[in-house]
Design a protein around this nucleic acid. Structure first.
Lengths: 203, 203
DNA sequence: ACTGATTCTGAACACTGTATAGAATCTGGA
DNA sequence: TCCAGATTCTATACAGTGTTCAGAATCAGT
């Protein structure tokens, strides 16, 4: 109960508050309209305070992006537990991916804006790799055990890019996005299953 | 030969020069580091000059994006002429899409940054629709004539999102991007062909 | 040669991120 | 208890941004 106007110095956990404010600003204005000073304003601190804790705007956004990856990984875990291995699971992950963008637009919007982030940040690449691993293992479970690892990796990449593409191309509000995604994932896995390897006949 | 320092007022076609300068700046600094004043500096005009011709930064970037769509459409036309109808052609378009991002990174980088553009601009949506139409007709040619139109549309969307996703996820510099794309497009079309409709058996 | 419209300039305003110096507060010994 | 020292935050300053607006410079037509 010590917060009325400005909790003064050392008010506990400024970093956490700044992160929350940053997400708020991202939700309202997006990554382009984002402003460090606006974050500071909402947290009721001086304009230079965020810089002290996160270095610069890239540092703060990197923290947001990392958190976003972790949230999504948790969603993946839930979706995996709720489904059987196989295509059903892959589709579930893909839909969870889309829903993450719909329900947490601010956080999600910076995940791949690498020009705005410290792209080499260890926590960030770790979180991103964890996510990919989860997807790869789901795809693994949806393909015959006979297919080579390279094949699995490429299919996982395809599922990811396919799903992400729907968001990047601005199809978020389409009502039948779910149908589109489900269709595409199913077609992709069908193709990856039946055409085990070469299919490019003719000259 | 009338340009030494500043060609003064009415130097002919400032809009065109500004567009070229804008692409230059985008090439070097990307859409985030972009600056109207920097564009004005390179065109050797006052800072407010771009605003006079394009309204604001969104107007200028919209013009760039529209030009980018038109360039890509021309690439699509060339790729279509150079290939037979069918999967081969779809793959060719997909690869042309990727190459457009590699060879004209500045222009391409704003095509889908709708927060930075006048998203409702008529020329822009026209150019985007033309591009989609070209892709749909290629996909049409790669699927049996029996498949319903909805099916074709969804497959075209899938090819587009799949291709775009590779770029959006930052896989531009990967050496084997071509292989990944070709693999994914082929798998997708295989799946869209053989599994004509429902495939979701089991509970 | 004059008039009006067009094209661009220059200055101003409200923003932005970040660097810096210093104030306010916490921490851990004596 | 009191007093360094380190930590956390403030206040100020600076260079840069987009956009607006009055007005100067030029063109086009009569």
């Amino acid at each position: 109960m010590q917060k009325t106007k400005r909790a003064a110095y050392h008010h506990g956990d400024l970093p956490r508050v700044l992160l929350a404010s940053a997400v708020e600003v991202l939700d309202e204005r997006g990554p382009d309209g984002f402003s460090l000073r606006e974050v500071a304003r909402r947290a009721d601190v001086a304009a230079a305070a965020p810089g002290h804790h996160f270095g610069n705007v890239a540092g703060l956004l990197t923290a947001v992006a990392t958190k976003s990856f972790e949230h999504l990984l948790a969603d993946f875990a839930r979706a995996s537990e709720a489904t059987h291995p196989g295509r059903e699971r892959v589709t579930a992950l893909s839909l969870a991916y889309v829903r993450h963008y719909l329900k947490r637009p601010g956080m999600a919007s910076v995940m791949f804006r690498s020009e705005l982030l410290n792209a080499a940040d260890l926590g960030l690449v770790q979180a991103r790799n964890d996510l990919r691993e989860a997807l790869v293992s789901a795809v693994q479970s949806a393909l015959p055990a006979s297919v080579p690892q390279q094949h699995v990796e490429d299919t996982a990449t395809a599922v990811w890019t396919l799903t992400h593409g729907h968001i990047a191309l601005g199809m978020q509000d389409t009502e039948d996005l779910t149908r589109k995604i489900a269709f595409a994932v199913d077609a992709l896995l069908s193709g990856a299953t039946c055409s085990t390897g070469k299919k490019t006949k003719r000259s």
